[in-house]
Design a protein around this nucleic acid. Structure first.
Lengths: 189, 189
DNA sequence: CGCCGTAGTCTACGTGTGTAGACAAACGTC
DNA sequence: GACGTTTGTCTACACACGTAGACTACGGCG
């Protein structure tokens, strides 16, 4: 039809597949996307995906590792960790915001046990450690994950389920409340 | 093989399908189960499911309504709402606990937008109202859903993803921490 | 005893899945 | 300028999905 074969550029093609996969997996979750969809969005045949990444699972593993590696929520140390994080959460889960990022990916793919295991590993490798490093005091790991739990839960309710109370809440008031909840795990008490 | 047809009992058969569906949807999520699986577990053909519930979506709607209707987490008023709820959460997400119930269903099926919409409606109808009724003061709806968010997030991390910090945390200490976070939204401040 | 509505099964269709294997064409190198 | 490697496509398979439609047999009522 349009073109028989795309220009030969392995690195660029691989990256195009990866980009397409990041968006697709984040939007619809592991089970909600087919390899053909990802390939089509990258302008490529489905088989090429398996050639570069071994399998759908392999591709997902790489996507998760990439998405979870870069920090999106926890800011640099500005002195007000709880407040900054809460404000970032509220801003990113606003109705008109673009809803990509690790939390969306996490929630959309959690249903599949294999995907869950892959993400658990990536969280331990990247996110947990990063969040944990921002905390002092005992039980930093547990407290860090509890903070992540609140963020993930709020993301779920506000963006994915779209529960009205949180969706239509006043942003600043909501952020303040979330900050107060986060303060419980930020301050060693 | 064993039997050609099951004894004719409409009510019992319908209930058997419903029971099977509750377990299956909760365990594997909307997209993770086939109508054939549910039917087989109930000792019935797949088509009977559609005959009784119209479609897979109709069956799911009924399951969600049933599961979200009965209270599982928020206790009767014992004077310590935050503490009791936190303890119930920790107990129910323990490693050796049976992991059914609304939160598991919610998290496992959130990936599918149609399922998410069905659950959003059910939350507004049952859970939100129940949790909200337990709260006094302003913004009760927002605060109730924020509480649900924490519970859902903790459930996700501890049971579904299986993050080590929360999985291996000391139950009483974890419950105390969750209770302190819940206290933020329970007390009007 | 015979009938009829209903509870149930069976077959089939169309579509989508992940991936294996064979084939075609563009590039770098001699 | 020919060759072999790489990059990409095409076809195909085996399976699972939701569900439409036709068929069968049980059970209560006359």
């Amino acid at each position: 039809m349009t073109r028989s074969t795309r220009p030969r550029n392995a690195a660029a093609t691989r990256q195009a597949i990866l980009d397409s996969a990041i968006v697709a997996f984040t939007r619809h979750g592991y089970d909600g996307v087919g390899v053909r969809d990802i390939a089509a969005e990258a302008g490529v045949t489905a088989m090429l995906v398996n050639r570069y990444f071994g399998s759908k699972e392999g591709l997902f593993t790489e996507v998760v590792d990439l998405v979870f590696a870069r920090p999106t929520m926890v800011p640099g140390d500005t002195g007000d960790l709880a407040g900054d994080t809460a404000r970032a959460l509220v801003a990113r889960t606003a109705a008109d915001a673009e809803h990509l990022g690790p939390f969306e990916l996490l929630l959309k793919s959690a249903a599949n046990p294999k995907a869950a295991e892959i993400m658990r590993a990536a969280i331990g490798r990247h996110v947990g450690a990063r969040f944990e490093a921002a905390l002092d005091g005992p039980e930093a790991g547990e407290r860090a994950e509890l903070g992540l739990a609140l963020l993930a839960g709020a993301w779920l309710m506000r963006r994915i389920i779209g529960t009205p109370g949180l969706r239509e809440a006043d942003p600043e008031l909501l952020a303040a409340r979330v900050a107060r909840m986060l303060a419980v795990i930020v301050d060693p008490s």
